[in-house]
Write a protein that binds this DNA or RNA. Sequence first.
RNA 1: GCCCCCGUAGCUCAGGGGAUAGAGCGCCGCCCUCCGGAGGCGGAAGCGAAGGUUCGAAUCCUUCCGGGGGCACCA
Length: 464
Amino acid sequence: NISVDAGAQGVLAAEIVAAGAAYGGSDAFAGEKINLEFVSANPTGPIHIGGVRWAAVGDALGRIFTMTGAEVTREYYFNDHGGQIDRYSSSLLASAQGRPAPEDGYGGGYIDDVAKAVIARRPDVLSLPDDEAQEVFRAEGVDMMFTEIKQSLHDFGVDFDVYFHEDDLHTSGAVARAVARLTELGNTYEQDGALWLRTEQFGDDKDRVVIKSDGEGSYLSGDLAYYLDKRERGFDRCFIMLGADHHGYVGRMMAMCAAFGDTPHENLEILIGQMVNLLRDGQPLRMSKRAGTVITIDDLVEAIGVDAARYALSRFSSDSTIDLDLDLWSTQSSDNPVYYVQYAHARVSSILRNGADLGLAPAGDDFDPSLLSHEKEGELLRALAELPRVVTAAAQLREPHRVARYLEETAASYHRFYDNCRVLPMGDEEPNDLHRARLLLVAATRTVLGNGLALLGVSAPERM
RNA sequence: GCCCCCGUAGCUCAGGGGAUAGAGCGCCGCCCUCCGGAGGCGGAAGCGAAGGUUCGAAUCCUUCCGGGGGCACCA
C-alpha cells in the first residue's frame, strides 16, 4: 500500500494544461505504419446503417492510433467491379426507360433519382443503343453515388486518405501479379478450368477460387491484390473492418495472408463489428437495399445529429449487437450519454469564462499543488491521470468504446467535484490561491474532456 | 451440420484472472443563499445453467440452454 501526498497528484493539473491537445498521447505505436480500411460500402446505393458503425468506430480508432504515435492511413475500398455493378447500371437503365427494376436489380427511390441525374448530365443517353446507354449509366451512376458517399462521410466527420478502386486492380495487372506471386510460392493449382488458392493448408475451411473458369478474377483475387499492394506501400499492419455478415471471410483472408508468407493477425487484422439494429417506437426497422427501405447515414444524422450518432455507435464494444432506438437518441435529453459528457465540458468552459470575466486566471506552474487536497479534487485528479492509459489500452485492444466510457466516468468525477468544491470567489470575496488552483484543475478537466471527445470525433461545446 | 458474436440490475450496456461487480435510463426518498439542476446525494435491484482450470473466474476451458449473424467459380 502506497499513500501519495496530496501535493504529488496536484502537480498533474499543471502538466495536463501544459501538454494541452497532446495530453493522453504516448509513443506506444511510434514508428508503426498502420493502414485502416473501413466502410468500403458498394457504390450501388447510399451508405446504410451497417457501414456507419465502422465509419464512427474506424475513424475513432484511427484517431486513437495517431494519438499513440502511429502513422495512420485511412482507406476506402471502392468495389466498382463485378456483377453487382452490372445489376446497378441495368437498374438505372430500366428506371430511365420507365421499366420496373430487373429481377435481381436494385429498387428504391434513389435509383430513380440517380437515373434522372444521369439523364440531366447526359441528355443523349436514351437515344443510344441499350448496351452503350447502360455503360453510360454505369460510369455516371457509379461516379455520382461515389461522390454522394464521400460527401455523406465528410459530413459525418470522416475523410479518407485513399479511395482505392477495385477496378484498377483488375485493369492494371495488379491481380495478375499477385496471383503470379502466389503461384511462384506454390500455393495455387488448376482444377475444373479455374485457378484455386490453397487456403485450406493455411487454416481455411476449403480452397478458394481466384481465377474463375471464365477467366475473370474472383472477388478474392481483388482482395489479395489489394493486400499485396498495401504491403508494398510499406504498411506492416493492415486492418480491415467488416460487418458480422462477412465474418466467414476472415478464414480465407488470413490464409491468403499466410500464403504470401506473412503473419496472420499481425500483418493483417480483420475486425468484425456486430450488427446495428434500429428501433422506432420500440419496433425493429426491417431494411432491404433492394426494396429501397434503407436507413442511410444521412437519415441517421438527420434523425439524431452527428455527435449523438458517432457517440452512440462508438460507446459500445464492436462485439455487441446494438439496438439504437431512434426516438430515444433523437430526444435531446439526458437519456443520451453524449449530453452528459458534453454538458460537463460546457460547465467547465462556463467556469473558465466566468473566471476570466473576474480577471482570474488559472494558477501557473509555480502553484502549490497541495492546495488540491479535497477528497473530490483527488478523485478528479486520479480520473484525469487515466487518459493516457485509457488511450493506449483502446489502441492495443482496438476498442474505442473505452474512451467513451472513460469520459463518462471523468464527467461524473467533475460533477461531484463541482458540487463539493466552490471554484470561483463568492460575492465580494478576494480571489486567493485556492481559487486559482481549482481553476487550473478545471482547465485540466477541459483539456481531458476535449481531447477525449476529439478522439471520438464528437464536438466539445463551450455552450449548450 | 460447421463457424463467429452475445447472454451481467426492470431497460440499454461497461467491466485486460485479483478488493464489497459499475454507469445511464426507469423506480423510491432527498439537495437550489451566489460558479449552468442537462447536476449531486441516498435506496431497492444482477453475472443464463452445470462442470473444469486457478490461491483467486463475470472474465479462461468444456458441455448445455437462449438470442443474433454467417457458411458461392456473388460481390
